[in-house]
Amino acid sequence: MNLKSRHLLGIEPLDPAEIALILDTAEGFAEIGTREIKKVPTLRGRTVVNFFVEPSTRTRSSFELAEKRLSADSLNFSSGSSSLVKGETLLDTLRNLEAMSPDFIVMRHSEAGAPHFLARYGRASIVNAGDGAHEHPTQALLDAFTIRQRKGRLAGLKVAIVGDILHSRVARSNVLLLSKMGADVVVCGPPTLLPPGIERLGAKATWRMEEAVEGADVVMMLRIQLERMRGGYFPTLREYAAFYGLTVERLARAAQDAIVMHPGPINRGVEIMGDVADGAASVILNQVTNGVAVRMAVLYLLAGGDRDAPAQER
């Protein structure tokens, strides 16, 4: 069994068997992170370009660590230092990157669809590390891995995703993945931050947080970006925190052994209170640890050589 595409552009094109394959494969990689020597020779001699056109520290670090633990050679090409600011087009930059014959390009871009564009023109395997408000597939995969680690399954779980659903690629990828795997997803946020038609992706929507959290097995909080306040989506951070902040009291409405997740970085006292973020239900740091294993699994599975070659014997 293998992934059908040599790119990971989003959760949307994956079928449930492919998602399960990535999560199962990540189990094997999680063990490597516990070893004294956290490195395997699997991608020795392969080159990965981390092409980050939008600032990102944690996703890039997580990919970098995954690449290093697989023994790949990686190089970072980011917006501040790149020629994009000098007026080069995206396609020209791609051609320049491809002239260095990378096997993978891990790409973060502020425009939705940018990785899909590269996948059409390039030879390398493209991994979408977040494109605009569209998708962030490896985040959804690491979230699913963390949920499965704690709950043993995804199907039948009630998952509440709370925050700025409108601008969130994390929410979109998670809704797609969790509903494909049979979980019940409720998205919740102020009416201005709930995109119309989100139900079509497979989630229920509500603007009442109490309703979303009621009986939830998983409460996933999204970072509220401070610049949204200036966009007029909500009046003040204090008001947002009062209606949509995860407090101990609100969490008490969730299932007894509910877990709390957050893709980071967290705004303490805004979308999540400090005592919840540091509490026993929080798996926020497990998400970070699991992110490396899941990204290793993705690179490993995409590294399959000739997809038409016969199975080899040893």
């Binding site: 199962d24 494969t25 699994a297 399959g304 050589g305 000739d306 070659a309 199975a311 080899q312």
Partner: peptide
Amino acid sequence: DLSRIADHPVLRRT
């Protein structure tokens, strides 16, 4: 032979 085989074997526990 990872770069040659089409189907990557499922990774199991170590």
